[in-house]
Amino acid sequence: MTSRTLRAWYALHKWSSLVCTLFMLMLCITGLPLIFSHEIQHARMPEPQEVAPGTPAPALDDIVAAALEARPGEVVPYLFFDDEEPLLMVASAADYMSAPDDFHYQIFDLRSGQKLDVPQPTEGIMYILFKLHVDMFAGLPGMLFLGLMGLLLVVSIISGVVLYTPFMRKLDFATVRVRRGSRVRWLDLHNLLGIVTVVWLLVVGFTGSINTLATPIERMWQASELVEMAATHRDRPVPTQLASVDEVVGNVRRALPEMRVTTVAFPGGPFASPHHYGIYLTGDTPVTSRLLTPALVDAGSGEVTAVREMPLYAKILFISQPLHFGDYGGMPLKIVWALLDIVSIVVLVSGLYLWLGRRKAPLEKRLAELDAGGLVTENTP
């Protein structure tokens, strides 16, 4: 590698790292507890009451009615079925187009209809960490900005890998020179941990950038695929009497028996249409359980009118979301993800330490020191 090429890679690594490091450090710190958010949420739930054998399950319509009775003047835009327990989360809001942050959530036991007293998911420290991690409380601009920082992380990692060989060519792999001063020790540790976690950092950085496009992807799907699915009812009058939720869910389950209903979107919301319920289902394999399949159900008759797979761009989003948090392999993979997250924090902090105490020696001189058996005492984050 020529001196000019090396200098270009070095500058690319330095500046891409410096711009994104503080934001990546914030994302690693906030992301650590979010890896276990599902487990934390379930730990905060009270134990449901025991249900006697043979007790008939309550109707979904009765649960919706109970939720509306507790929140007078509101509507129910969504129902969310828990993927592990027989629980139903009912979202209510001032209108069907309200933002999710304005929803009030009530959780019911599907076996007994018991309402569980649980904290609101839009309150507390986990919600603050989630918002910091997703958009820094800045909405779509914040999401897109963090996506840009994720792409800079990918650039930083790739350029760091390119620089690893010339900077470490006189040392054995995994060498940490513990007797040559704290800066050299941190330099070797930074390089070692960075190269060991390179694949994980690339995966997390790239999937994180994809996840920041969730809102544009949702809007693109709503404006194209959802409109096409609902086109057959475009010229019909909007139903004044909605079909029973139990009937709607039952018809979808009979039409797609191999799939599981996860979400019911009520007519008039952004994920349904004025004429339809939007029912979202998942499969039963590790991959298909993360992919949503939408079905539209006539809001008046309860008849299933359209079922369509999500387009490729939406599937990429659905696959990247759980991969970003290590949510494919259960608790063992989550623990691995958490350990790698901690290692990444060390990489970022050590990079900042090395840059803040950097030497002013030219790049060529430091490489010459390596060739002569000396020390490289500067590297960027």
Score class of each variant (00 low, 15 high):
residue 79 L to P: 00
residue 79 L to V: 12
residue 80 F to Y: 14
residue 80 F to A: 07
residue 82 D to K: 04
residue 82 D to M: 05
residue 82 D to W: 06
residue 83 D to T: 15
residue 85 E to V: 09
residue 86 P to S: 07
residue 86 P to I: 11
residue 86 P to G: 09
residue 87 L to V: 09
residue 88 L to I: 09
residue 88 L to K: 03
residue 89 M to C: 13
residue 89 M to I: 12
residue 91 A to V: 09
residue 92 S to Y: 03
residue 93 A to Q: 02
residue 93 A to H: 01
residue 94 A to E: 15
residue 94 A to G: 05
residue 95 D to A: 10
residue 95 D to Y: 02
residue 96 Y to A: 15
residue 98 S to E: 14
residue 98 S to N: 09
residue 100 P to M: 07
residue 100 P to V: 12
residue 100 P to S: 14
residue 102 D to H: 11
residue 104 H to M: 12
residue 105 Y to V: 14
residue 107 I to Q: 03
residue 108 F to E: 03
residue 108 F to Q: 03
residue 108 F to N: 03
residue 109 D to L: 08
residue 110 L to V: 08
residue 115 K to V: 10
residue 116 L to M: 06
residue 117 D to H: 00
residue 118 V to S: 01
residue 119 P to I: 14
residue 119 P to C: 09
residue 120 Q to H: 15
residue 121 P to R: 06
residue 123 E to W: 12
residue 124 G to I: 14
residue 124 G to Y: 08
residue 125 I to H: 10
residue 127 Y to C: 06
residue 130 F to T: 15
residue 131 K to A: 14
residue 131 K to T: 13
residue 131 K to H: 08
residue 133 H to R: 06
residue 134 V to N: 03
residue 134 V to L: 13
residue 134 V to K: 01
residue 135 D to N: 13
residue 136 M to F: 12
residue 136 M to G: 05
residue 137 F to I: 05
residue 137 F to L: 04
residue 137 F to A: 12
residue 139 G to I: 06
residue 142 G to Q: 10
residue 144 L to D: 05
residue 146 L to C: 05
residue 146 L to A: 02
residue 148 L to K: 05
residue 148 L to G: 13
residue 149 M to N: 05
residue 150 G to Y: 00
residue 150 G to P: 04
residue 151 L to R: 07
residue 152 L to P: 02
residue 152 L to H: 06
residue 156 S to A: 13
residue 157 I to H: 00
residue 158 I to F: 06
residue 160 G to Q: 02
residue 162 V to P: 00
residue 163 L to A: 03
residue 163 L to V: 06
residue 164 Y to F: 14
residue 165 T to V: 13
residue 168 M to Y: 04
residue 169 R to C: 08
residue 169 R to K: 10
residue 173 F to I: 09
residue 174 A to S: 11
residue 175 T to D: 04
residue 176 V to K: 03
residue 177 R to L: 03
residue 177 R to Q: 10
residue 179 R to H: 12
residue 179 R to V: 07
residue 183 R to G: 07
residue 183 R to W: 05
residue 183 R to E: 09
residue 185 R to P: 04
residue 186 W to V: 11
residue 188 D to C: 11
residue 189 L to F: 12
residue 190 H to L: 10
residue 191 N to W: 00
residue 191 N to S: 13
residue 192 L to G: 05
residue 192 L to I: 14
residue 192 L to D: 10
